[in-house]
Design a protein around this nucleic acid. Sequence first.
DNA 1: AATGAATGAGGATTCATTCAT
DNA 2: GATGAATGAATCCTCATTCAT
Lengths: 199, 199, 199, 199
Amino acid sequence: MPKVGMEPLRRAALVDATIDCIGKAGSLDVTVSEIAKAAGMSSALAHHYFGAKDQIFLAAMRHILFGFGQVVRAQRAGANTPRARLESILRASFDTEQFRAPIISAWLNFYVQAQLSPDAARLLAVYQRRLRSNLIHDLRPLVGVRAVDCAQILAALIDGFYIRAAIGTTPVNPQDAVRLSLLTLDRILPPQESETSIC
Amino acid sequence: MPKVGMEPLRRAALVDATIDCIGKAGSLDVTVSEIAKAAGMSSALAHHYFGAKDQIFLAAMRHILFGFGQVVRAQRAGANTPRARLESILRASFDTEQFRAPIISAWLNFYVQAQLSPDAARLLAVYQRRLRSNLIHDLRPLVGVRAVDCAQILAALIDGFYIRAAIGTTPVNPQDAVRLSLLTLDRILPPQESETSIC
Amino acid sequence: MPKVGMEPLRRAALVDATIDCIGKAGSLDVTVSEIAKAAGMSSALAHHYFGAKDQIFLAAMRHILFGFGQVVRAQRAGANTPRARLESILRASFDTEQFRAPIISAWLNFYVQAQLSPDAARLLAVYQRRLRSNLIHDLRPLVGVRAVDCAQILAALIDGFYIRAAIGTTPVNPQDAVRLSLLTLDRILPPQESETSIC
Amino acid sequence: MPKVGMEPLRRAALVDATIDCIGKAGSLDVTVSEIAKAAGMSSALAHHYFGAKDQIFLAAMRHILFGFGQVVRAQRAGANTPRARLESILRASFDTEQFRAPIISAWLNFYVQAQLSPDAARLLAVYQRRLRSNLIHDLRPLVGVRAVDCAQILAALIDGFYIRAAIGTTPVNPQDAVRLSLLTLDRILPPQESETSIC
DNA sequence: AATGAATGAGGATTCATTCAT
DNA sequence: GATGAATGAATCCTCATTCAT
């Protein structure tokens, strides 16, 4: 068993275990011991690496947000038109790698956590701002001043599908979520009647 | 101080205090003692009336759902057309009496709770089914087979606005929520292009 | 519902309910509320009549001891010889009215209670002394100085059958208990070899 | 102060403390905190090692039964005749190491516990069966079919002396208990009159 | 690096008991 | 006489966190 260079491995294992445990428990009521055991180590070691429980949560949140950011960038890479970029955001949001039960459940719980921990709130705010900024940036050329409204609608829709997936009453699969959000996108893109009346 | 017939008063006080505490704490990590103190009684009395903590939560949830149901029914009363009824659902969802910080926060947390407690899940499922059924019923005459898709979009939008209000990063006020969801409604109501192409 | 002269009825009901509850629970961990409910009244009333929980227990114990005393006296009435009187004690001990599951269980628990409460200990001591005194008195004419030893054996045997009935591993029925204890009695009555050698 | 390999030490300390506390209190109404303090540790540690209170009790019971089993085996070792083996059982039962106030009191309380906890009942049943089986095995060559009856008598006598020692009204010391039970043994061993009449 | 040992603080729950009506 | 209302005190148990090794 190697004794050096374990830190990044241990941290990663703990982060994965955290997401997994939260997902399985469906709540933040997960003990450090549980997480540590799932990560194959003692709870003392978890504390050694992260200092305190909320730091573990924060790291897990960061991990998820980072993974999400990667997918967004990857999808955006080949998108050349505003419409294509918007579509890439929606597809990224419901990417099958992200839109999985444990991660969805973790998301919901991070939303809760954000109400408690300023750190978590800040992290979430960064993500929210980036999403909003991306949406508005791509909507502006298409709908002008309505970009802000449309961005809010799309953002709410994404969150809505997430939360509904979390509870699982209405079975929402990634494909449906993409289809329905794209449908909404295309419906809100066309100019308003007042604008069309000019023609 | 009256000493008889206290039960309903105490129960109501506890339910109110529960919603309040959850709202203030932004989480379900609220002790029975806190709730009881906020309701002006000992924790022992809270247990006397509700038996256990989750029963208090459940009662609070029921209270919120009942209040919501009342608003929906009240709004629906004067709505004669399908379009008007749909609008009434959206207006009820963001009714200023319901769409208040503590209740919004309580909602978010009940979504979490629903992942843990079967009772909570059942309660939420009833609400979800009723909303969905109402939406589809009113959408059918307007959009035919697309009713199911549209209902999912609207339901997700409502949940999305709620969750966003809960975290409060994007300040969503009731008026905006109503405006944006009505905007979306009107955008998704018109027939699809494939349908118009018949003309 | 009569409002006067209830006291003796209430007290009796509570005493019966106490024995019943202890028997059913198999332990003294019975709440006043349980007892009161079983007796058809509120726990407050139970306190009103008995003052405190251990007084209820004590009253129940007294009731059992009194019942036992009655049976002993009744059985002794027609017994004219020492041997017949001894037999009457053993028969009374395993009288089908006394040797019933709830009462047996109550007995066992009163033995425990006697280790805690001086009042209970005193009560039990009275019963023990009377039993011992009766046994010795009737054994003396038959076995002389060995009366004390024989009394101890018989008394231990009675307690032993009770405790074994309480746990119920070896199914002991009243008939067997009487038969075996009479068998023992007759075996220990005859003179010792040292005594017989004189003849 | 050693910091490794504490578990067996702690467990043993807790088991000893449990027997001691139950003995001193004369009842199972002993808190985990009391036991833990008597064992020189925090109640949290007691829970850490045993999980729950009844597991501590069970372990204490197992300890007593194991100790008793050891004494029985040791005494039986040198006993070559049935009569000697029977005597060894009785001597083991009242061995001065076992027949001490705290252990006797613990026994009485375990009898009560056995009425509540299936685990305790099972443990006690094992002991009861072994004792009964030993007694019958050794009585058979001496009294034939009467072995079962005689075994019941002796077993009841042992329990009886224990319970009487527990309450302590009649001061029973180990020597007397052995003497009286041996006396009984020798009295019930000789053939019945019906059998002797054959001669 | 890693862990078993250890605990203080806290929380849900129970219950005997009191009191106003 | 009778009870619902009310609570303080106690108890089991959990858990994040620290420490010695």
